[in-house]
Design a protein around this nucleic acid. Structure first.
Length: 259
DNA sequence: ATGGCTAGCCGTGCTAGA
């Protein structure tokens, strides 16, 4: 089966691209982030017409996550139980579901903005709460993975020029340690293979010709438990989906499993 | 050309993204 994750940067603006990608890549399960729509405003009918069930979790103009599945969609949980508030609100940044033989989480980890910003502390707290929330599934025998936009570049080579990131978020030691901590709960990364370039970046900023110059970052990750990772046959970043007009600033990460 | 940001919102500029 094929499982994928994609930060689509608005499901409304990206709908034609999303439908096209569902048809061409034909994932069995797709985790989406940054819906930028309420759950009610999700384009259910268009997606269902392609054979997918949908679990969406969103509340408006920011954030929002979803899981699309054509192999079953059960035991849906919206939100991150025990997760921190930001400015008094529990933001819609996580949704989980069982899709046939696998259980998946779709996560949109807070950005952090600046190291000194309250959003950064919130990001670290959020990752800590995520570890606690997935502990049982991570340690279980059922194939399990947490897929999404982690907003963390784990290695210096996961950004196009580490010198430009001095003192910035996404590359700081505490953020990287928080991902290591999440893995310590029983998960390990599924590494996508490199395609045109050595590093399989997943994000390229719209500004300053980020994509043509390959000024990218590898921040969309798949963390699986041993049962999930043992079934992995291939993984790649579909950078073709980043090309051209009307693209998201993120590309999908695809994982093929023998399940 | 893979091309100089993009999306959403009561908006006519601002916030957020990373």
């Amino acid at each position: 089966m094929r499982v994928a994750t994609w930060n689509i940067n608005s499901v409304g603006a990206r709908l034609p691209r999303l439908l096209e990608w569902l048809e061409s890549a034909a994932p069995d399960v797709l985790c989406l982030q940054e819906l930028k729509s309420t759950a009610d405003a999700f384009p259910y009918e268009a997606v269902q017409a392609l054979g997918y069930e949908v679990a969406a979790h969103g509340d408006g103009r920011w954030n929002g996550v979803a899981i699309l599945s054509r192999v079953g969609l059960d035991d849906v949980v919206r939100g991150l139980d025990g997760g921190p508030d930001y400015e008094g609100v529990q933001e819609p940044r996580a949704v989980s579901a069982t899709c046939g033989p696998v259980r998946v989480w779709s996560v949109y980890v807070p950005n952090g903005r600046e190291v000194a910003h309250a959003h950064y502390a919130y990001k670290l707290e959020w990752l800590k709460a995520l570890k606690a929330a997935v502990a049982d599934d991570a340690a279980g025998d059922r194939p399990f993975a947490v897929l999404g936009d982690y907003n963390v570049a784990r290695a210096d080579t996961d950004v196009w020029d580490i010198k430009l990131f001095e003192g910035a978020t996404h590359v700081s030691a505490l953020e990287r340690a928080a991902i290591d901590e999440l893995e310590a709960g029983g998960l390990a990364e599924v590494m996508p293979r490199a395609l045109k370039y050595d590093v399989p970046f997943t994000f390229w900023d719209y500004r300053d010709l980020g994509f043509p110059k390959n000024k990218g970052m590898r921040i969309d990750l798949v963390l699986g438990n041993p049962a999930f990772n043992a079934a992995v046959k291939d993984s790649y970043v579909d950078r073709e989906a980043r090309r051209g007009k009307g693209a998201s600033d993120h590309a999908p990460v695809v994982v093929d499993l023998e399940l």
